[in-house]
């Protein structure tokens, strides 16, 4: 999907009221080749209605810590890999996951679940960094999986 399509998704969600990120945040996110934990915290928590859109990345990271979803030893500015982002999406949107995920919920099986659901597409590795466009695309596909119009 090209940049225009990604922008279309962002615009679609904004128009339907699912979330309305500030233009500055969206611009920074889409141009980032390796998004930070703070950025995806804000993106995921606002999109999942766990946080108001007027909050910032620091507040989002703080809430993520309160929810117990911050991976051990990670800081606000640390880059996020695919499996960690997959786990955040699974937790934030309450996706059930497979048998192993239910017994051992964590990034490993969250990555496999989202790959199975085609939220993660193409050749990838769980440790790959997530770029901004990919983060938005994956979020859009999670909405597809959930049937959000």
């Amino acid at each position: 999907m090209n940049r225009m399509a990604v922008l279309f998704i962002v615009g679609l969600f904004a128009a339907t009221g699912l979330f309305a990120q500030s233009n500055e945040f969206v611009d920074n996110l889409l141009s980032n080749p390796a998004v930070s934990l703070g950025q995806v915290s804000y993106l995921v928590l606002v999109a999942s209605d766990n946080l108001g859109e007027d909050a910032d990345e620091v507040r989002a990271f703080e809430l993520l810590g309160n929810l117990g979803w911050v991976p051990s030893g990670m800081e606000l500015s640390d880059t996020v890999d695919l499996r960690t982002y997959a786990f955040m999406l699974m937790r934030a949107f309450g996706l059930k996951g497979g048998i192993m995920y239910r017994f051992f919920p964590g990034p490993r099986y969250a990555y496999r679940e989202l790959a199975s659901l085609q939220v993660i597409q193409g050749k990838s590795d769980p440790s790959d960094p997530v770029d901004g466009a990919t983060a938005v695309r994956m979020l859009g596909r999670v909405f597809d999986v959930l049937g959000v119009k």
Partner: peptide
Amino acid sequence: LFVAPQLLAFD
């Protein structure tokens, strides 16, 4: 199975 993949870049 559960610890190593979190630390190293392989699956």
